[in-house]
């Protein structure tokens, strides 16, 4: 892996003002680095802020705290031309294949949108490029003039991938790209995403709630809980040793499709639900469900610390 840094996030925050309720700290001091050519998995349950973080990185939201740099430059500091270039290099694939395509545009138009915006490939070349993209994602010419509603979820997701690929990005943020799909289709899409990485050297930020899926594709994994990263480690290391009690609980909650294995597994049951993220006080945000919670967790918010080389966890008891 080349060690060129693509993205550097320094204590990024995004807070939303909720009417009559207070402040929702969707993303709260996240620091991350994404290197060229790697897949960074970002895992967390619904409402943990992982999607908000992804959307902030593609400039759908502006972070209110911290800094996001792309290749060393603040993404909010670009001039018009640099900004267009940023949008060309950083693409995103969305979760819902039914909402991510304009229902009035045929597939050809949807895929060509980026080419039109960035004035890439003219005339006949553009049509050829669209066909090439369709082939890359396993569809053919016959599909080019059809409307999104004629496709299945997996096919639509592939069209979404082709649209993102069209502008030849360097990194694609995958926002739960397979969680709306059936398992047999999930594997297709994941394989496609991985194959494209090998073929054209893409980098990914892969956002998902599925720890077993992210294991299959990531080099490093960040676990997020209530707006903050609680553990960050190389994939293999995370599954072998997990230092944060939330990671342990998450791993043990995933059912394995084998009754024999399941019978032997010990499960760490978390009590209760994720607390309401509005107006969280200080201290560790996981303490209300944590089996290890102590007085210290109420008073002091744990910071990410390096436990073993490259493996970080944010827990007072991790060592």
């Amino acid at each position: 892996m080349a060690d060129q840094v693509l993205f550097e996030l320094k204590s990024v925050s995004k807070h939303f003002q909720v009417k009559n309720a207070g402040v929702l700290k969707a993303v709260n001091g996240v620091s991350l680095t994404i290197y060229k050519g790697e897949t960074l998995g970002l895992v967390g349950e619904s409402g943990c802020g992982k999607t908000t973080l992804g959307h902030t990185m593609v400039k759908l939201y502006k972070n209110d705290g911290g800094m996001i740099t792309y290749k060393g430059r603040d993404i909010w500091d670009f001039n018009r031309r640099q900004n267009m270039n940023y949008h060309k290099n950083v693409q995103i694939i969305y979760q819902d294949p039914y909402a991510s395509l304009n229902p009035l545009h045929v597939v050809r138009q949807s895929i060509a949108e980026g080419l039109e915006i960035h004035k890439l490939y003219k005339g006949k070349k553009r049509t050829e490029r669209v066909m090439e993209l369709l082939r890359m994602v396993g569809l053919n010419q016959e599909h080019a003039n059809r409307f999104p509603h004629e496709f299945s979820g997996g096919q639509r997701q592939r069209i979404g991938i082709a649209r993102a690929l069209a502008v030849e990005p360097e990194i694609i943020i995958c926002d739960e790209p397979v969680s709306a799909l059936d398992v047999s289709i999930q594997a297709q899409i994941v394989n496609l995403i991985m194959r494209l990485q090998r073929e054209i050297g893409l980098s990914y930020l892969f956002i998902t709630h599925d720890l077993s899926l992210v294991k299959q594709i990531s080099d490093r994994i960040a676990v997020m809980y209530l707006g903050a990263i609680v553990e960050l480690a190389p994939a293999q290391s995370l599954y072998e040793h997990h230092y944060h009690p939330y990671t342990s609980a998450l791993l043990s909650a995933i059912p394995i499709p084998d009754p024999e294995v399941e019978k032997k597994r010990k499960r760490i049951m978390l009590s209760g639900d994720v607390p309401n993220p509005i107006n969280l006080g200080g201290g560790c945000s996981f303490r209300s469900r944590c089996p290890k919670a102590a007085k210290r967790c109420e008073l002091e918010c744990p910071q990410l610390k390096e436990i073993t080389p490259g493996h970080f966890a944010a827990c007072h008891f991790a060592e």
């Binding site: 047999s184 594997a187 194959r195 294991k215 299959q216 994939a235």
Partner: peptide, 17 residues
Amino acid sequence: SIPRLDAPGKGAMEFIP
């Protein structure tokens, strides 16, 4: 085609085309 926690590391998955 289900990703399994107890499967070995990163790699292509079995799938149904």
